[in-house]
């Protein structure tokens, strides 16, 4: 079992690195999908099969498809040269240093973590559903409103606006 976790983790990390360092947007997105699939394996191993399914269906499926559509609409795949000129090795230094500092911080925090042993068991989707629609009902409502706002916002922003002239410049 542990072997699967480590394999999935390594695949996820490597494909994520490929995704963020790639030049071609489509390739990066495919690597990202690979990473998400690997993470969904981890979810499964962490006794959350329902979440693993959601990860595949919504993340790797819906959201990434949205990305790919937009990327294709923008024809970014053809701009590798430009992408190359935007990234030079020096730019990686400072963010990498910052990230490694934070990683060290995380390690320190993990070292100090108290060990609590709770009996492990699979959490079934039923439990999640009951919790979702009882304890977190209000949050669900808010999430629904947020999704609605997202739909309207995306529609509004996505529509190509007509060029509006000032009323003095309009032709009568």
């Amino acid at each position: 079992m542990e072997v699967f976790f480590y394999i999935a983790a390594v695949i996820a990390i490597i494909s994520t690195i490929m995704a963020i360092s790639g030049r071609n947007a489509i390739h990066s997105l495919l690597f990202l999908i690979l990473s998400l699939l690997a993470i969904s394996v981890v979810f499964y191993l962490l006794d959350a099969p329902f979440i693993a399914a959601l990860e595949v269906i919504i993340y790797a499926g819906a959201i990434m498809v949205l990305f790919i559509f937009v990327t294709m609409m923008l024809n970014i795949g053809l701009e590798e040269k430009q992408e190359k000129s935007w990234i030079n090795p020096r730019m990686w230094i400072i963010p990498s240093i910052l990230a490694s500092i934070l990683l060290v911080d995380l390690l320190l925090a993990l070292k100090n973590m108290p060990t609590v042993v709770v009996g492990k068991q699979v959490i079934l989707p039923k439990q999640v559903g009951i919790s979702l629609f009882s304890t977190y009902l209000l949050a669900v409502e808010i999430a629904a409103i947020l999704l609605m706002a997202g739909v309207i916002g995306a529609y509004h922003l996505g529509s190509q606006k007509k060029k509006v002239l000032h009323r003095f410049l309009e032709k009568k």
Partner: peptide, 19 residues
């Protein structure tokens, strides 16, 4: 955490909005 910091590095390094 490693995944998170990889994401952070990507956010800081890339200039392309899609990335």
């Amino acid at each position: 955490g490693i995944l998170f910091f990889l994401g952070m590095i990507g956010l800081l390094v890339r200039r392309n909005l899609v990335f």
